[in-house]
């Protein structure tokens, strides 16, 4: 039961079906990579799990440790241990990272209980040291004027502070040069452990050189067409997505 379980999921925007009968399970302590070409529905999958209001779930369910996520608001899912690292994180003008995280952690406490400021900062500094983030970083407003690399580091710092049970990382490598990619990957690796299940969504194989997955799934046109071990990513890198499409009986993009 200790898993994030996607069962026969169907998702549409308007008339357009984007996810078509997709099933996938991420156990606690496991690292799953979902790879796929542009437009395969990867980012939709991430947003639907987190509860983005723009998408309509037309079938199936997502269970987190046995609990149906679709019966919960996005913030309830988050408080129960679901984290999404966004492909394009939003700016929150005027709100510092330190204050934002503090509000997020406060929201996880029972009513009437106050977050201890000293404990909070001790944890914040510990995680910043772990991720090799400069102390001045958290006095900046969330994502405001950040470079691509800074935005992704900010996501990973939030993940480290909020201790999720399951994390979905949506194209965490996009927009990063190789140095920034290494830093972010080492951050993710430092958070790996038996109490965290990760769904890593990526277009390129190169991220998987730095974050080695336990399982790789290939997603094409709204469904998983192939699953395997980490070697599947290499095979895909060599042969390209068209190879998968042919095998899956999907139309090859023009």
């Amino acid at each position: 039961m200790q898993q994030l379980e996607i069962k026969n999921l169907r998702v549409a925007i308007g008339e357009n079906e984007i996810i078509r009968d997709l099933s996938l399970s991420v156990g606690l302590g496991e690292m799953h990579a979902v790879m796929g070409p542009n437009g395969s529905g990867k980012s939709t999958l991430a947003k639907v799990i987190a509860g983005h209001p723009d998408y309509k779930v037309t079938g199936g369910e997502v269970l987190m440790d046995g609990e149906n996520l679709f019966e919960l608001d996005p913030d309830e899912r988050a408080r129960k241990g679901l984290f999404l690292a966004f492909q394009y994180p939003s700016e929150v003008p005027g709100v510092t990272i330190a204050n934002f995280l503090r509000a997020a952690m406060q929201a996880r406490l029972p009513e009437g209980e106050e977050l201890e400021a000293t404990d909070y900062y001790a944890k914040l500094y510990e995680k910043m040291d772990l991720l090799e983030i400069d102390r001045s970083f958290t006095s900046r407003a969330v994502n405001e004027g950040f470079s691509g690399g800074e935005k992704k580091r900010c996501e990973i710092l939030q993940m480290a502070m909020l201790d999720p049970r399951y994390a979905v990382l949506d194209e965490t490598d996009s927009g990063l040069d190789i140095d920034a990619l290494k830093v972010v990957a080492s951050g993710v690796n430092s958070l790996r452990g038996p109490n965290l299940g990760v769904l890593l969504i990526t277009h390129y194989q190169r991220l998987l050189n730095y974050i080695v997955p336990d399982f790789v799934h290939v997603m094409v046109h709204g469904r998983i067409v192939r699953s395997g071990g980490k070697e599947l990513a290499l095979e895909l890198e060599e042969k390209g997505y068209d190879w998968i499409r042919e095998h899956a009986g999907e139309p090859v993009a023009a």
Binding site: P53, F86, A104, A107, Q158
Partner: peptide, 17 residues
């Protein structure tokens, strides 16, 4: 949505914004 994903209720997210 971004702020809700971090665990803040809609009202908390609005008020923080």
């Amino acid at each position: 949505f971004y702020m809700q994903q971090r665990g803040l209720s809609e009202a908390q997210a609005m008020s923080l914004s």
